[in-house]
């Protein structure tokens, strides 16, 4: 078996700040993962369909507009509806401390705010990937 971790890096919502998503995508590649990047303005449906077709192990969501409570949860709800809970979901952006437990509860397992290191993210994925 030559298993590689496949990660979907997705930007839901309307904000165009892709510096973080791109840096993370490159870092994950440099850590030996296959990273599918979808570009900007993805609807939850687009993200779910892509996750299915690409058979990813991880979905990394990046959102800096503050719409995370709505959109991250839309996505985890749809993952549950589609029986795709074996996919590890992590998220990054401007996320206030008080939102973190609610997002965890909704199924976003790792939350990485400003100042999280690339190593933190890589380690978290490697330790928590479910399959």
């Amino acid at each position: 078996m030559d298993k590689k971790i496949r990660v979907l890096v997705a930007k839901p919502g309307l904000d165009g700040h892709d510096r973080g998503a791109k840096i993370v995508a490159r870092a994950l590649r440099d850590a030996g993962m296959e990273v599918i990047y979808t570009g900007l303005h993805q609807t939850p449906d687009m993200i779910i369909q892509t996750a299915i077709q690409e058979d990813v192990d991880v979905i990394g969501l990046s959102l800096l507009s503050g719409a995370h409570m709505t959109l991250f949860r839309d996505i985890t709800d749809k993952l549950r509806e589609n029986d795709m809970e074996d996919i590890l979901v992590v998220g990054g952006g401007i996320i206030p401390e008080e939102d973190v437990p609610r997002l965890n509860e909704a199924g976003v397992r790792g939350i990485f705010g400003p100042g999280a290191t690339l190593d933190d993210i890589i380690r978290f994925i490697k330790e928590n990937v479910k399959r």
């Binding site: 309307l14 303005h41 609807t43 507009s65 503050g66 719409a67 995370h68 709505t70 839309d74």
Partner: peptide, 8 residues
Amino acid sequence: LSRGEFGK
């Protein structure tokens, strides 16, 4: 597409 983004 505005969902969740209002006034944020």
